[in-house]
Simulated assay, not measured.
Amino acid sequence: MSGKKNVVVFVVVMVFSLFLTTMNAIQIDDITCSEALFSLIPCVPFLEGSNPPTPSPTCCSGANNLYQKANTTQIRRNICKCFKAASTKFGVNPDRAKQLPGLCSIPLSFPFDPKADCNTIP
């Protein structure tokens, strides 16, 4: 039970921290950085490298929804920058981040990598 409690505490702290750090953030067209990150909250256990070894259906649903909204180069670059900053703050496992699009059947044309150069994303 303490593992689930730690994940819940982590998610609450992450959302609160992101809310505070993005209150003055620019809007990513119709998607704020906080909204983009919120859509991937179900992915936290997978992205941090703990069990389960595959993302949950809820995680993939949120990731696919975000993928559908990221329909311009500028939105994709802004979301990349948002995730890049969040991944370093919250210890995202880079290997898991790279696996997420494939495991959720998201046809990205660029790697989902916390070390990616966001300015080169098409």
Rank of each mutant, 00 (worst) to 15 (best):
M1S: 09
S2A: 15
K4H: 07
N6P: 00
V8H: 05
V8K: 13
V11R: 02
V12A: 12
V12S: 09
V12N: 02
V13W: 02
V15I: 14
V15Q: 01
F16L: 15
L18W: 00
L18T: 09
L18N: 09
L18Q: 05
F19S: 09
F19K: 06
F19C: 05
F19R: 08
L20T: 09
L20N: 04
T21P: 02
T21H: 06
M23Y: 10
M23I: 13
N24G: 13
A25F: 06
I26Y: 02
I26F: 04
I26Q: 14
Q27A: 11
I28C: 05
I28T: 00
D30T: 13
I31H: 00
I31T: 13
I31Y: 00
T32L: 04
S34E: 06
A36I: 10
F38I: 12
F38M: 14
F38K: 06
S39Y: 01
L40N: 07
I41F: 05
C43R: 08
C43S: 14
V44F: 03
P45H: 08
F46R: 08
F46D: 11
E48H: 02
S50K: 13
S50Q: 07
N51T: 09
N51L: 13
P55L: 12
P55V: 12
P55K: 14
S56R: 08
S56P: 01
P57S: 13
T58P: 00
T58K: 10
T58C: 04
C59P: 01
C60F: 11
G62A: 10
G62Q: 09
G62M: 12
L66A: 06
L66N: 10
Y67F: 12
Y67R: 11
Q68E: 14
N71T: 04
N71L: 00
T72A: 06
T73F: 05
T73V: 15
Q74E: 15
I75R: 09
N78Q: 15
N78R: 12
I79M: 10
K81Q: 10
C82F: 04
A85M: 04
A86W: 01
A86H: 03
G91T: 09
V92C: 04
V92M: 06
N93M: 04
D95M: 11
D95W: 05
R96T: 07
A97D: 02
K98W: 03
L100Y: 05
L100A: 08
L100D: 06
P101K: 08
G102F: 03
L103M: 12
S105L: 10
I106Q: 07
P107W: 09
P107H: 10
L108S: 08
L108Q: 06
D113N: 10
D113A: 01
K115G: 12
A116D: 11
A116E: 09
D117W: 03
D117A: 07
C118I: 09
N119A: 13
T120H: 01
I121D: 03
I121Y: 06
P122L: 11
P122K: 15
